[in-house]
Amino acid sequence: MAGIYGEVSWFCCGSSWGPCGSAGHGACGTCNSGSRQHAWPNTSDACHSITNPEACGESLSRRTCGFKHYTTNRCTGQKVGTTIADCGPQTDLFCGERTCCGSVCGSNRLIDLTPAAFSAISSLSYGLRPAYIDIV
């Protein structure tokens, strides 16, 4: 498959502090903020019916726990490899949202990285980055 363009954000999971404390280990039961992992909107029928990326015109392949994706921060070109550990983000809540740096823009939330993964390609204090997501 060719890669896809979208927005990347971050989320916390596993044992944690603050509002994250109740997050749990995610749909796969393996998710931890300190590991290179991510959430994907189509890990199962139940997951897909919640995230509903089609509402934003995004058709995403079914991929299950442990599948590897590589996410590039299109503002800087930095890339990180992660495995699926949870269902998310809830794409349909933010249809049409755009994030840009310079002339590079990304639309629609397609992937959420753990803090360990996101901080490898961006600062955590930026909530959103335009991203390119691929399997290599």
Binding site: C75, T76, Q78, C100, C101, G102, L124, S125, Y126
Partner: peptide, 22 residues
């Protein structure tokens, strides 16, 4: 301000050398 910085070519030229947040 950070938002505007990220839209500049100067940031993109240097971003990979930057190791910290502000």
């Amino acid at each position: 301000t950070v938002d505007q910085l990220h839209k500049s070519s100067a940031w993109r030229d240097l971003a990979r050398s930057v190791t910290s947040d502000v």
